[in-house]
Design a protein around this nucleic acid. Structure first.
Lengths: 335, 335
DNA sequence: TTGTACGCGTTATCAC
DNA sequence: GTGATAACGCGTACAA
């Protein structure tokens, strides 16, 4: 119930109380070697008493360094990004850095606005995964020549000389097709995302090459697309179901799609893991609890990706002349 | 490829270029009415050219206001908190506020350290859900009389006169027991969390009163505890399984527990939704995809809670004299 | 070992 | 309508 005012203590007040100069207080507080032990102790004692806490806003301002990084992701609620955030917070916390966050919700305008905010906050670096609808990459240039290091991960722009950490979707796809083939499947389908999405493009290409690698023919009817809505997912499954030569094995775009299509398959009377088999690009292992989970899933290690990206960012912050880092994490089939 | 230096443009440079004073530039940039239209336009044009962006660190420093709130949660990767974060980011973004984040991981020391960081960043307010192991609430006092408004949500300290948004677990529990009873169940068990957890205490109490309300006897063997590890969860299920009068209906602490115990039940040969029925305190609706989901789940609306908490915080920030707000969200059974 | 003086970028206050 | 000046809290080069 103290009538403790709202104004935080400053070094000046400590100085006045001790009848010494503010600079001495400053140095004492920072354990500057030139200050006598007694003085240092006296200063610290009074600082404690007065509940002194350094005003970081002043320090940030003066030092032109904020010990803060900005993290900009498409979404903060998706499990993939949650694991990422968690790792980023850990790495940052270890290094005494603070994290400010924003979600673009795949809105390019919002994305740019948040980036601007980060910049005006003078963050020491930016970690970001680009939204699906971002086409204009000017902001990048602006950021870069403002000297703020930036590291992309997961969804990265296709530009040379930037720092990025991404996932190689092909390795997991290869393993998936191999696994299907090893079990005797020949009619293998792909339920892909929206056609214009780079992530879809990549899945398609690696799907085709994995088929080829296994000596299988490609039938274009076996690639269907979904707009990632539940309706779209179900429609995609319907298309496959309607085929005269129904596929017995399916690789699907991601968890959410897989959940929908598996349900749709069940509703059509197909017996999971008997009539039809699924492998999903997956973000988290919830499958183990299901009675009929997908046959396998392709793990992209969002936590690891984010962690690595954060580490690169901190390297860059401490050594701006570092050459651009480009890391690729292999995706892996988990069964 | 411009040799654009690393130093951001300041109003001084704009002033020099235009041969006017920095104050005029400042006023022009802020659309101050006393500045002539022509001057204002000229200033804005040059600012644009020079890629001027206000240095918030300087503004924060001067204004003693950071337009930043700190959000401290036990975990950033749990779905419950992810939805919360997402809503908080939305509300903050709407109000032009920035969010800095930290996760305590239920470590009281880390929690306090992060809070200290928030404070030294001079955040305008704090939003927090208290960790499981936090016993010492001194930090709260310190924060409060430093004038920083703080709003708790989900896991809130049991103290009067603070701002909090919490969930009433009893309403959902009542509906759950009613639903079980309506379906003829009499042997109803509770798989609860660690005994010392307030959340467990609350579940237990509402379980007991819901039983009573339905004229059912309470058998202490029907309440088992888990430490929330997979092993603990399985052990809890085993205890129930071993009972001579096995329960036919179970309310379980949360999603993760439910997943484990349902699996354990299946492994014991019990047929879900026939031999044994589950209702779970649930954070997100993934159940609809399962072949044998729980009979129902008790939704706590983390997104709504967080949104309301954020709104209260912003009210507090704008009007510090506002009386403490205490909101309770009723939990609801979803079937 | 300690004090003095200055500057970081911005805005409020006062003067013209 | 515009300019000069001070101030926010801190760190540090320079002086003593």
């Amino acid at each position: 119930m103290s009538i403790q005012g709202d104004k935080p203590t400053t070094i000046k007040e400590i100085a006045k109380k001790l009848k010494i100069s503010p600079s001495t207080v400053s140095r004492a507080l920072n354990d500057h070697p030139s200050i006598g032990l007694v003085t240092t102790m006296r200063v610290k004692k009074v600082a404690e008493e007065l509940n002194y806490e350094p005003n970081q806003t002043a320090i940030f301002f003066k030092q032109r360094k904020t010990f803060t990084i900005g993290v900009l992701l498409p979404s903060l609620s998706e499990p993939f990004f949650s694991s990422a955030i968690s790792e980023i917070e850990n790495v940052s916390n270890d290094r005494k850095y603070t994290v400010i966050m924003g979600q673009s919700l795949d809105d390019a305008e919002r994305e740019e606005r948040i980036l601007k905010t980060f910049k005006s906050h003078r963050v020491d670096g930016v970690l970001m995964s680009v939204g699906k609808n971002t086409t204009n990459l000017e902001f990048l240039e602006k950021l870069e020549n403002s000297g703020t290091p930036i590291v992309f991960f997961d969804c990265v722009p296709d530009i040379p000389k930037i720092n990025k950490v991404e996932s190689d979707l092909a390795t997991g796809m290869n393993e998936a097709i191999d696994a299907f083939v090893a079990r005797g499947h020949a009619k293998i389908a792909l339920i892909n995302g929206p056609q214009l999405l780079p992530a879809s493009e990549e899945r398609k290409n690696s799907f085709l090459s994995a088929l080829k690698r296994n000596g299988l023919d490609y039938d274009e009817k076996y690639i269907v697309n979904t707009d990632l809505t539940t309706e779209g997912n179900e429609a995609a499954m319907e298309k496959l179901y309607a085929l005269p030569e129904r596929p017995t094995a399916v690789v699907s775009f991601n968890d959410f799609v897989t959940l929908d299509v598996m349900k749709a398959a069940r509703n059509r009377g197909l017996v999971l893991n008997h009539d039809i088999h699924f492998i999903s690009y997956a973000n988290y292992p919830l499958w183990k609890y299901m009675e009929n989970p997908p046959m396998g899933c392709i793990e992209q290690f969002p936590g690891n990706q984010a962690k690595k990206a954060a580490e690169i960012l901190f390297e860059k912050i401490n050594n701006p002349d570092l050459a651009p880092q480009q890391i690729v994490f292999k995706s892996r089939l988990i069964m």
